[in-house]
C-alpha cells in the first residue's frame, strides 16, 4: 500500500516555511548580537575584550545541542519561567550564530584600511559617524557573503529543534514517517528539501561574492549542525 506522498506536500512546505522563519529570526538576533560582540572585541577596555573573547571561545567549543537542551529544560528549572521549544531553539541558534558572526563582523571591520578611518577623522567625524558613513558601508560588503554561509549553517542547525519537540521541517518529516508506517521516502524528501533550500541560498551567496569580489564560504569548515 503506497501512501499518497503528494498529499503531505503542503504540510512539508509549511514546515519548511517554519524552519526558514526560525532560522531567519535566529540569524537576525545573531547578527545583531554578533556585531555587538565584535565591538566589544575591539573595545579599548581589556575587560570587555576578554569577556567577548570568552564568549566566542565558549560557543565555539560546545555543541549547540547541549545549549538547546539547557535553554529548554534547564532555564525553566533554574529561573522559574517556562520556555517554549521555539524560544529555546531560537535562543540557542542565535547564541551560536552571534559567536560566529562576531568573527565575521570583526574581520569585516578590520578589512577596511586604517586610511579610511584616518581620512574620515581628519575631516572631523567622530567614531560613530565614521562607522556609520564610511567604515560601516564598506564593512558590510565584506560581511555579506560569509553571512550567507552562517545562515545556511543556522538553517541546518535548526533541525536540532526537532529533538526538543519543536515541529519544524525535520520533526514534520519524522511525524509523516511515523504515520505512514516508517520508510525512507519522508526522510529522503526531508533531505531533498533542505538541500534545495540551502543550495539555492548558497547560489545567492556565490553571486554576492562575485559582485563584491570576496572569496570563500565561511561554512567551509565543518559547522555540521
Amino acid at each position: 500500500m503506497n501512501p499518497d506522498w503528494l498529499s503531505y506536500g503542503p504540510l512539508m512546505l509549511r514546515a519548511a516555511g517554519l524552519t526558514l522563519w526560525l532560522s531567519w529570526l535566529a540569524m537576525l538576533i545573531g547578527a545583531l548580537g554578533g556585531t555587538g560582540i565584535a565591538f566589544l572585541r575591539t573595545s579599548r577596555f581589556r575587560g570587555l575584550r576578554l569577556l567577548a573573547l570568552l564568549y566566542t571561545e565558549f560557543f565555539r567549543s560546545v555543541p549547540i545541542l547541549i545549549v538547546m537542551f539547557f535553554c529548554y529544560f534547564g532555564v525553566p528549572l533554574v529561573f522559574g519561567f517556562d520556555v517554549s521549544s521555539f524560544a529555546a531553539a531560537t535562543i540557542a541558534l542565535a547564541l551560536h550564530a552571534s559567536s560566529t558572526m562576531s568573527e565575521v563582523v570583526r574581520a569585516g571591520i578590520e578589512s577596511v584600511g586604517r586610511g579610511q578611518w584616518e581620512a574620515a577623522q581628519a575631516a572631523g567625524m567622530d567614531r560613530v559617524q565614521v562607522m556609520r558613513y564610511i567604515v560601516g558601508p564598506q564593512a558590510i560588503r565584506v560581511v555579506l557573503p560569509p553571512s550567507v554561509g552562517v545562515f545556511i549553517t543556522t538553517l541546518k542547525e535548526s533541525s536540532l529543534a526537532s529533538i526538543i519537540g519543536f515541529i519544524e521541517l525535520t520533526k514534520t518529516g519524522l511525524l509523516v514517517r511515523e504515520s505512514t508506517d516508517g520508510g525512507l521516502v519522508p526522510l529522503l524528501a526531508l533531505a531533498a528539501l533542505y538541500f534545495i533550500i540551502n543550495y539555492a541560498i548558497s547560489l545567492v551567496g556565490g553571486r554576492l561574492e562575485r559582485r563584491f569580489h570576496i572569496g570563500s564560504r565561511s561554512d567551509l569548515v565543518g559547522a555540521m549542525g
Binding site: 545556511i152 538553517l155 541546518k156 542547525e157 535548526s158 533541525s159 536540532l160 526537532s162 529533538i163 525535520t170 518529516g173 519524522l174 514517517r177 516508517g182 520508510g183 525512507l184 526522510l187 529522503l188 526531508l190 533531505a191 533542505y194 538541500f195 540551502n198 543550495y199 548558497s202 561554512d219 555540521m224 549542525g225
Partner: peptide
Amino acid sequence: VEVMRNTPLLVILYIIYFAGPG
C-alpha cells in the same frame, strides 16, 4: 560535497539509522 554541505547532519543520521534494517 554539495549534498553534505547543504543537508543537516541530523537528517543524514536518521536516514542511515532507519535505512539500515531496510
